[in-house]
């Protein structure tokens, strides 16, 4: 079995988000980058499925050389090898196209990734890769079992869950519940340095979307405190002032 896991290089979750150049660029100064937390869940499930010699896990990242420390982190967690497609991931369409083009050149059973990246919050890549490869894409999954030919997947739907069965190649985007993110151990960190990391050149595709500017939410006014024994006052404010109940 071979599993491809797509990983995105994103700012750490504690990052204070600021912009430069007239709010047209994300300010990376002083920001530390991590494996996108959802992709880490996907990677952890892939490693579990391949444990005991049942298969191998290849991580794929679309990024310039600055993402290599993040790729090494994924190798430390337990991926067997890595592929970096050498380009700035300018939008989901571009990224998905590169992943699909690479997937066409290799043999695999499934592709996993996270439900969305925590920077641009697009949950686009998985379904786009599915469409480029003309294979099923199951978005926002919570559980994944695989018997060697058929996957049984639970995905989240409004107010409940759905169980889907897929035979043959597919791509799924993983949410919490699919696996518990694995923390790399010392052996993993040591061996990550010598695991293969292949660099592949990107393919050309027309650009159809571009972030022109960033904006931050307006600050809220000061909090109105209500004494703890006057809860009816809070209900009154929510009803007549905020008009939300």
């Amino acid at each position: 079995m071979k599993i491809l896991v797509c990983i995105s290089n994103v700012p750490d979750t504690t990052t204070k988000i600021t912009f430069t150049n007239d709010n047209t660029q994300f300010n990376t100064s002083g920001v530390s980058f991590i494996v996108n937390p959802y992709d880490e869940i996907a990677l952890s499930r892939a490693i579990e499925l391949c444990a005991g010699g049942k298969g191998t896990v290849t991580v794929i990242n679309v990024g310039e050389s600055v993402t290599e420390p993040t790729i090494r982190k994924a190798l430390a967690i337990g991926a067997d090898d890595a592929v970096r497609i050498n380009a700035e991931p300018r939008d989901a369409y571009f990224t998905a196209y590169q992943i699909a083009e690479y997937a066409k050149t290799t043999d695999y059973d499934m592709i996993l990734c996270g439900r969305e990246s925590i920077d641009y919050n697009g949950s686009q890549v998985a379904a786009m890769v599915g469409e480029f490869l003309d294979i099923p894409s199951i978005s926002i999954i919570k559980k994944l079992d695989y018997d060697g030919t058929t996957a049984t997947i639970e995905r989240e739907i409004e107010g409940g869950k759905e169980v889907v069965s897929v035979s043959g190649k597919f791509i799924a985007s993983c949410a919490e519940g699919t696996a518990v993110a694995t923390i790399p151990n010392m052996r993993g960190i040591m061996s990550a340095r010598s695991k293969p990391l292949q660099v592949v050149e990107a393919k050309e595709i027309a650009q159809i979307s571009k972030v022109q500017q960033f904006d931050t939410p307006p600050p809220r006014g000061a909090v109105k405190l209500v004494p703890a024994d006057e809860t009816e006052k809070l209900i009154g404010l929510l009803h007549s002032e905020a008009k939300v109940i």
Partner: peptide, 11 residues
């Protein structure tokens, strides 16, 4: 964008 910490105006 950035999980509600910002907005991205996309063309």
């Amino acid at each position: 964008a950035f999980s509600g910490k910002a907005f991205a105006i996309t063309e």
